[in-house]
Nucleic acid binder design. Structure first.
Lengths: 204, 204, 204, 204
DNA sequence: AGGTAACCGAGACGGTACGTCCAGTCTTTAG
DNA sequence: CTAAAGACTGGACGTACCGTCTCGGTTACCT
């Protein structure tokens, strides 16, 4: 993955009085790779600038806080993410979604990126606001769909949807933040059945 | 709370070839107060040393990583924490426990401390291990009690206990990490009833 | 003095394929005011451009180095400067000239400007050349007049004129560069009499 | 000259809660060499730190401003400087002293250093104060000796000493600041005779 | 009883990163 | 061709912390 697209020896100059997409791409790529290689501990604006062949002011101009940069890195990757699946049963929807999400977190720099974003939010107000007011609601909306569909089918109580979504998100956060998102079918399935109210032994 | 017990003008010398409890207390108190005042962002070993009137090596001697210090700060406060309540019904047990936990997080430096610990775990392997292998299991064991009691009563399926605990922990983490632990009876109650499998309208 | 003539809200566009006098005036005025307000330390092309409502390239086009700009700023003000006086005696000529020069340096941004120019000459070859080969000879020529007149009168040895001029310039530079050009009649008079070879007690 | 005494591969650690002479020496040497090589334009704290193998805070700890560092660099070299000579006549004293001074300025990094110090004084109050209140008086005292001796001999008027010293210093400054301190016997001699009041043709 | 080992505060050390400012160059858009 | 605008890389600024080290001093333990 680490294949930052720049450093062709030539210097990347301005393209006039507007944002240079090449610079933006180089910075995002450098940030992504750096996160992938060294995690949050090694993630510094200095190093991103160095790798991207960019000036620090260029970074600060477009991403005033680290959180802004992290969000963009995460979003750029999220394109690949799975839409809520539709297996017919909530518990297996959850199972599929979770495995896909964890695979995404493991297989791309995204897991590291999201962990970094949460960490950053514990230190800075800006990151916290971004996480709470922008990131989380978006994800919530996304997930609610899955649960509302189940409610429409009568699988779960419609009044419980909000709580279920938040519980589900929490489960994923704890796993990610404690670095336990290796593929874990038994753990995930138990969680999925519990959330869906499906008896544990009951086959799909 | 900020009443760091030191700075009497006199220098706190060694008491021989063993740990000086006064130094330890001063450092923990300084760390606690600093966290309370400035949060994770302002939490530095330099500042703790300054406030405690301690030398940095003294801190590093006993707490090699920030995480070690954070854990001790958190543990020192945890004395006050509530044992799992016993109301007779799981959903109200959860409700009580959660409100007590959040009050504890809000009313002491503990919330800040725990947030700091989680953030630290995203940057350092040591903190991660401490959080995952020492802190979390301990908490898990603590909480499992509450759910196992409910399973014994037949309120929930015994096979779901582990998942329920992890879901519940996740809910609390998300709330804490996004700074949404203000007293929130509706949100907590919905979560508690959902987890306990109790119909939303059902009175206590 | 700070009354930079621009910033009328309107944008100052090009006036075709030739230098825009309005832009030039605005830049010189901005440079002068900036020097007056913040001295050499605060004198940056960025800030001049900002104040003048000009683009940096516009400045660099016409004044390739800071020294060029400083020289123009100084020259623009120098119009007001006193021609060599004619009191009949060298020592009082010097006295008058010096007091006029220092008053000029104190009362306009010129003192700051000239100090900036000398400082700039210590860092850049261009400024050095400008100072040494353009500025200094011009001033020398100006001053030599005063001393040559005295030599013609027989007050001083004609062969000493060059040395006297350079000594006199040096005196002024040291005073300016160490910020000691407050009105100083005794100091100036002693210097003037010494240079002119006039006995100190001798009245005019 | 550039033979900075460090970089033996080993890291230069602290030697306890006190200033490390090795670090001080390395920093002064690096500063001196940098000045010699690149002059004031290339003189940055960053580069000094790099060359000295020192941390920037170590430099700022002991030399809060650039001027402080420049003064120390100049002073360290000044050991070699010539005491006021005693040839029996003022004009030849001046001649000797000047040639020795200029040779010193040319032959060591001192010329560059002093130019840098003067430049710095145009930008910062600290440097100005150091130059005006510490450096200049010291030099003045040094030089007054030479002129007072001449006054005692009756060569010059005792009342003119102060002015003569300041004129003489000014002459040297102008020459240094305009980079004209190449050996210049005619120019120096004319100045010396003029200051000393000796007829130009008179042999030694 | 004396020597020594480990502790204590203090603070300097080499470093890395921070976020900002400025230098000088470039390109676009408009006149 | 000119001007304005503002982006671009690059590098220096001065500060905050990091984790390590050495000092000088104190006290308890073990010969």
């Amino acid at each position: 993955m680490p294949e930052t697209p720049q450093q062709d020896g030539a210097r990347r100059a301005s393209i006039g009085a507007r944002r240079n997409p090449a610079a933006e791409a180089a910075i995002l790529a450098a940030a992504r790779d750096l996160l992938a290689e060294r995690g949050y501990a090694g993630f510094s604006i200095d190093e991103v600038a160095r790798r991207a062949g960019a000036g620090k002011p260029t970074i600060y101009r477009w991403w005033p806080t680290k959180a802004d940069l992290l969000i963009d890195v995460y979003s750029a990757e999220k394109a690949a993410i799975i839409a809520a699946p539709e297996t017919g049963a909530l518990w297996s929807d959850i199972l599929d979604y979770t495995r896909a999400l964890w695979a995404f977190w493991r297989g791309t720099p995204s897991g590291r990126t999201f962990r970094a974003l949460i960490a950053e939010a514990q230190a800075g107000e800006a990151a916290l606001r971004a996480l709470r007011d922008k990131f989380l609601p978006e994800r919530l909306k996304d997930l609610r769909l899955m649960f509302e569909r189940a409610a429409a089918r009568g699988d779960i109580d419609a009044a419980a949807v909000d709580a279920l979504v938040e519980l589900y998100i929490g489960f994923n956060w704890v796993r990610l933040l404690t670095d336990r998102i290796a593929d874990d079918p038994p753990g995930i399935e138990a969680m999925a059945r519990t959330l869906a109210g499906a008896p544990p032994g009951k086959a799909q």
